[in-house]
């Protein structure tokens, strides 16, 4: 056995508690994805996760606390996915593959649910500054991943030396987020594809001479 066999009952209970907590957050994330934050009640979460009211309130004192846990959960997933997808991008072709995978994943659902993180950003209430700041930090991390990819393209000589990659990363992330939203309302992934393609076309105009096709 491993070291866990030496743990006290209290710690084992905590581990069980963690499992319950994970189940609650997963159920809440699913519900909020489909029904929105506003359309999801704590009763819904109880039913979907199969936990009792007292269990739910032991982990989350109110809905705001649960929303923040969902933001952390969804944020970890999105940032891990983007780190994986953008981490090796250093060419325009690589950037187009990133674009293709996002479009393809979203097209499977006709763009219906939008970006998991963007949807939360669109719905978090004005008065929840903590949730807003958590989302801000996650989007900055996403922006940094795009900036890093553009920076690698610049160092590889794909992009012109003079361009401000951090600023372009803001543009890319805005196009992507807006694209998700347009696709969601149109129930069609096409506007998202167009928005990202225009951003990539702009980047192509910034390509170092003779490197536009790389």
């Amino acid at each position: 056995m491993n070291a866990n066999s030496d743990e006290s009952p209290a710690i084992r209970l905590t581990a069980r508690g963690m499992k319950t907590r994970t189940r609650i957050v997963a159920a809440a994330a699913d519900l909020m994805r489909v029904q929105g934050i506003g359309g999801t009640t704590l009763d819904d979460v109880m039913v979907a996760s199969g936990v009792s009211k007292s269990q739910l309130y032991r982990h989350f004192e109110d809905k705001d606390a649960l929303v923040r846990a969902v933001i952390t959960n969804v944020g970890e997933f999105v940032i891990a996915r983007e780190t994986n997808m953008l981490g090796s991008v250093s060419t325009l072709a690589g950037l187009r593959r990133w674009r293709d995978s996002l479009i393809k994943a979203n097209a499977l659902r006709h763009g219906m649910y939008g970006c998991a993180l963007g949807s939360l950003a669109g719905e978090v209430s004005d008065h929840d500054a903590v949730a807003r700041e958590m989302l801000d930090e996650l989007f900055r991390a996403w922006q940094s991943l795009i900036d890093d990819a553009l920076g690698r393209m610049k160092r590889a000589g794909v992009l012109d030396d003079s361009i401000d990659t951090a600023r372009l990363a803001v543009g890319f992330l805005a196009s992507l987020q807006g694209g998700y939203l347009l696709a969601q309302t149109a129930r069609d992934v096409e506007p998202m594809a167009i928005a990202i393609d225009v951003a990539i076309a702009h980047l192509e105009t910034l390509a170092a001479p003779d490197r536009a096709a790389s």
Binding site: G118, A174, Q177, G179, L182, P191, I194, A195, V198, A201
Partner: peptide, 29 residues
Amino acid sequence: LPTATSAASGHPESLAVAILASLHGGATL
């Protein structure tokens, strides 16, 4: 537009989609 990927990107319709997307995404950020 230097490559085929972006063949339609310069059309007014496409630009309008891109402008509206940037507006929305930028507003969120």
